[in-house]
Design a protein around this nucleic acid. Structure first.
Lengths: 223, 223
DNA sequence: ATTGCAGTGAAACAGTTGTTTGGAACGTGC
DNA sequence: GCACGTTCCAAACAACTGTTTCACTGCAAT
């Protein structure tokens, strides 16, 4: 609904990328209306005020994402390795979303997660929690022994942090590499594979002291 | 210099936390002047305009940080484990900075790193690069075999991403835990120790296929 | 005492913002 | 034709922004 060429739909479609790029405060209704080819007054006519337009735009993005990318495919009998790999592939694909038309939806959701305006408060459980619960479940499968709740969270944050870095640290990454290398070496697939390898090693080594881990190189930990 | 109770110094001191909290665009010179107990005109009188005040505030923060926390202590003959631990401790201490008077300095630098206004462009090499070079050096020491440049970067991003998560994902962390647990389980020391363990396991397992890890067998390289 | 000048502050200025207004345009049902 | 409600628009509005103006202070040098 509301994707047509009616003004209301056009406003949401125009507002999405602008809110995603500049944030709520920096985006102006004049910019949005100009991009939508609509009059300045139309925002207030159709939505009441700017904040309600933001809310509608946000929940539109949320609904689209839930519908199109429900969650990483999970099979209860899969090995935890494959679950983790699937989770990371899905996550990185979202963060690296190449499709111009839908990228802003991820950006908007992520922006709200990192610097909340408060609009997501009610949707937090629905949007973020399922993804996080899935991750903690995978982590728990990896870590054989009984870890504390705080440990599971820290481990999950470690996995999640690696992923989010490529979005929040985008400017850093872009500055450290020239364009051709960036597009060659930092595709969503390669980064996902890297984070998978990194995290698998870490998770499997969890709880084992340094001297017990690692192979024959025997770089024993002491100084 | 310029920390006294002269108006110029007070303006910088007042502007720091406000810029750090709200960002350049959202912070108003009226707010800053009110906080500094100065007249609205004083910003333009002493700095020319708002942007130059931001620049002065930023480089003040930069200079203070460089002076007070030069870099994690490095000794060339230390074991890579101890270097990594030291690096992470120092990094997390900065991110968790408890001192009200200096916290904004870290926040401002980090904000500029994540969503640059462009002011840091010339200081990027001076501020970020040394820290990153130190990290890549440690990573290289861990990974025995000769890794590609891109691999070293990805590994370093994995370490860095885990740290930055506790700042950019602050709202997430805060939402997932009730207050008392948060302050007990998520101190800078505990988080640093966790990221250290996680990363050490991962780095030592780098390049070894899954089937080969955890056992005292030979080391092969793939891909 | 007078001059010169850096510092101060209340007020005004010009631009941008979200929002409101009053009426024009349009189609629909009588 | 005519009344009616919806949609649209140019203009205006009020609040807020960074910036400027200008008269005034205090004080040191003349």
């Amino acid at each position: 609904m509301s994707d047509g060429d009616d003004v209301r739909g056009r406003l949401i479609q125009a507002a999405g990328p602008i809110f995603a790029e500049k944030g709520f405060a920096q985006a102006t209704v004049r910019d949005i209306c100009a991009a939508a080819g609509a009059n300045v007054a139309s925002v207030n006519y159709y939505f009441g005020d700017k904040e309600k337009l933001y809310f509608e735009t946000f929940s539109h993005a949320h609904r689209c994402r839930v519908r199109q990318t429900p969650l990483p495919p999970f099979e209860p009998d899969q090995a935890p390795e494959e679950k983790l790999r699937g989770f990371l592939r899905s996550m990185l694909q979202r963060l690296f979303e190449p499709d111009e038309r839908t990228r802003w939806e991820h950006e908007l959701l992520l922006r709200e997660l990192v610097q909340p305006t408060g609009i997501m408060e009610p949707l937090f459980e629905e949007f973020f929690r399922p993804m996080f619960t899935l991750l903690t479940g995978i982590v728990r499968e990896f870590v054989g022994q009984e870890p504390s709740e705080a440990d599971v969270h820290r481990l999950s944050y470690s996995v999640l942090g690696q992923c989010l870095f490529y979005r929040v640290g985008e400017h850093i990454v872009r500055k450290m590499h020239d364009q051709p290398e960036l597009s060659r070496e930092f595709t969503s697939e390669r980064v996902a594979e890297h984070i998978f390898e990194f995290s698998r090693s870490a998770l499997q080594g969890y709880g084992k002291p340094a001297s017990m881990r690692a192979g024959p190189t025997g770089r024993e930990a002491d100084a």
